[in-house]
Write a protein that binds this DNA or RNA. Sequence first.
DNA 1: AAGTTCGGCAAACACTTGTTTACTGAATGG
DNA 2: CCATTCAGTAAACAAGTGTTTGCCGAACTT
Lengths: 208, 208
Amino acid sequence: MGARQAQKQQSRRALLDAGLHLLADQNLASLGVREVTRAAGLSPAAFYRHFPDLAALGVALVEESLASLHVMIRSVLAGGDGAEEVIDRAVEVIEQHVRDHRPHVRFLSRERHGGVRQVREAIDAELGRFAAEVGAALALQPASEGWGPEDLRMLAELYVDRMVSTAAAFLEALEAPDADPEAERRIAAAAGFQLRLISLGRRHWHGS
Amino acid sequence: MGARQAQKQQSRRALLDAGLHLLADQNLASLGVREVTRAAGLSPAAFYRHFPDLAALGVALVEESLASLHVMIRSVLAGGDGAEEVIDRAVEVIEQHVRDHRPHVRFLSRERHGGVRQVREAIDAELGRFAAEVGAALALQPASEGWGPEDLRMLAELYVDRMVSTAAAFLEALEAPDADPEAERRIAAAAGFQLRLISLGRRHWHGS
DNA sequence: AAGTTCGGCAAACACTTGTTTACTGAATGG
DNA sequence: CCATTCAGTAAACAAGTGTTTGCCGAACTT
């Protein structure tokens, strides 16, 4: 890659980073082009060399954020099959992920139902793909015998939604002004309990 | 109430309605005082006769939105005890509620993780109170014998969260440009399935 | 070495913004 | 009936906004 492209990528990075940083305490719809370029150390006009819109920057952030999420989900699904172990690992991995990628998680959580349609749709589509991935993994387990693909999808959605909620809860605990380690422990306990309850229900499910 | 107060309330209503209307496709943080007053047919300065902040208007909208939610939750909990019936009724009531109070539901869904802390906290607190209410109702059922209050709370949270997610899903289906009745049916089916799965897991839970 | 591409800039465009000010005039209460 | 209260107004403030323009100069191509 030429030095030309490299410098362009660097500016693009600066814009994305500045955006992500500013989105710590405001949402995409209230972000301004000038605000971002100022924080990135560029002139306002430079923005348009990279994105047509702020919505486009948002979509780029979605892609970035979800790439790291994909890695996470795979690390949960791979490994021991015991339901208990998978659940415990899932909760741990989620907590660690929120810790490592706090700005991205915050962005996703905030914009999932936020004011910018393009971004909302991008997140939703990708979350659907997660559910499909989880569903495929579930289908491979012996406990899924006799389960239709429709049921498996609904089950996977339930798991994914639970994980997203858990991540959001961890996030809120981390952002609280008085960081309380007890709160995190309680969230982890609740998540473990709830996931266990779901998988228990699944084992006792006999046809729909 | 004097005619004086009545007129004031009318203006306040106009501001709240205008705000709620504008929040259909943007979020609170990006709303402007002038924007609201313009839509309400008042002068910008008039806003400050009613609210010190836009955040305050947001909190007022939260209270309004949650009042109607409380009514809803009670109508679910009251009535036949059969788990199946409760679940089916819950899904129906949620769907109807979203239909009847679309702007409020949208507002709650959007601002639950939105950019205004005051509003986020107000929603969260009230949602916690819902969970407590559901937990209290669960405690009365015979199936809760041997369940600690902690477990009941986590279970109630799981139910409430599921309901909120379901409401959000219904909302998104209603807002889709091509209104697809099939999508709503699918959401209702998924919600029923998932709630059933949870209550099945609950019945087979033996201590934590 | 000459010519082209193109990322970044400063400046200008025409608005929109939040908030305060001094005011008006109808409802209120004595 | 007269004084007071107070919701609502118009006007002004100093900023801030998105986007376009023409231009520069370093990196590429031939």
